[in-house]
């Protein structure tokens, strides 16, 4: 496996202060520190060419994990191996094969055109003129960069800037990509474009990608596999479909009726979520979906039936809710 994480941990000492002047004075004379477990013993492995979605609420430890994998942070414990390197040794040979794109931090020089940063990266990453030209042409085509390259970066829109950021981060054709919120703040069209680009890059170069995002569309479009973490702990690692099946063991059956039907008659098929005139939404157990659908078709005056998974946002929200519950339960236990 090109990327393996074993019992990885990162604890931060955080200094505690009560609000107000007395709190400030107290903390001036005696600082109290408490360890915050940003990442708490997680293990996983990722294969070449996989795109894995990293999910979790704010502060779950996603970014901290990506920072450890890209060599910005020393782990408190455990280990990470990427492409045969230990990231925190920050060997130039490793740094030349990976990239970290942070949606909220930019490497482009604000006052100069993006092309200027590209040239600097060409030198820093020791990219040959020929490869530089080829890669830049490809990226220009995939991301429509042509009209942007010579404009001062600060004059670009957020989406245009993100496209240039991605290009700057990929000029050296990294094998491993860590994308931290690459679509944050972008409009839907631009999000789609960036998404398509990531998929295309993955396909062309068989690059291994870990992606975090708040937009579920990013994850459903790109990642077959997701890793869910919360409070620094790994909650789930597996396929997105299975996660949906496990967390939300129901399907949503939408029925268009020819005539009005009493609500009480519908109750026998499943949980009625919504009745609006002649369109009805029923929540049915996943395992009984086909059986119940057959009954509906036979017994009710049907115009149309559709079967859907509940929206993935709801599924993820439920993962986090459950995570919070177990977390609170253990916390309560610890207080006893």
């Amino acid at each position: 496996m090109p990327l393996t994480v074993t019992h990885l941990k990162k604890y931060y000492p955080v200094h505690q202060k009560e609000p107000g002047i007395s709190g400030s004075l107290k903390s001036f004379f005696r600082r109290e520190y408490r360890d915050v477990k940003a990442v708490d013993d997680i293990s996983f492995a990722i294969d070449t060419g996989e795109i894995v979605g990293f999910l979790g609420p704010n502060g779950a430890g996603k970014t901290t994990t990506l920072k450890m994998l890209s060599g910005l942070l020393y782990p408190t414990g455990g280990s990470a191996r990427v492409l045969g390197f230990t990231p925190n040794e920050r060997k130039p040979e490793y740094l030349r094969q990976m990239t970290l794109v942070m949606g909220q931090k930019q490497q482009l020089n604000w006052d100069l055109p993006a092309l200027e940063t590209f040239l600097v990266n060409q030198a820093i990453y020791e990219i040959s003129d020929e490869q530089y030209k080829r890669t830049l042409d490809e990226l220009t085509e995939l991301l429509d960069l042509a009209p942007l390259l010579k404009k001062q970066v600060r004059k670009l829109s957020l989406g245009e800037r993100m496209k240039c950021e991605l290009a700057a981060a990929l000029l050296h054709r990294p094998q491993v990509l860590f994308l931290d919120e690459p679509t944050i703040g972008l409009d839907v069209t631009m999000q789609t474009k960036i998404r398509q680009f990531i998929a295309e890059y993955n396909r062309r170069y068989r690059a291994t990608i870990i992606l975090t995002s708040h937009y579920m569309a990013d994850v459903t479009a790109l990642c077959k596999r997701v890793i869910v973490i919360d409070h620094g702990k790994l909650m789930y690692d597996g396929s997105l479909d299975e996660l949906a099946a496990r967390i939300a063991p129901h399907k949503l059956v939408r029925v268009e009726l020819a005539t009005n039907v009493e609500g009480s008659r519908l109750d026998s098929y499943g949980k009625v979520m919504k009745i609006q005139e002649q369109s009805v939404e029923l929540l049915v157990p996943r395992s009984k979906t086909s059986e119940i659908t057959a009954r509906i078709l036979a017994e009710l005056p049907i115009v149309d039936v559709t079967i859907q998974d509940p929206p993935i946002e709801d599924v993820i929200a439920r993962v986090f809710e459950q995570a919070a519950l177990t977390h609170n339960a253990t916390a309560a236990h610890a207080d006893d």
Partner: peptide, 12 residues
Amino acid sequence: HGDLNIKLLHPI
């Protein structure tokens, strides 16, 4: 402010 991160990613 975390801007050092950007420089740390470069192989120099």
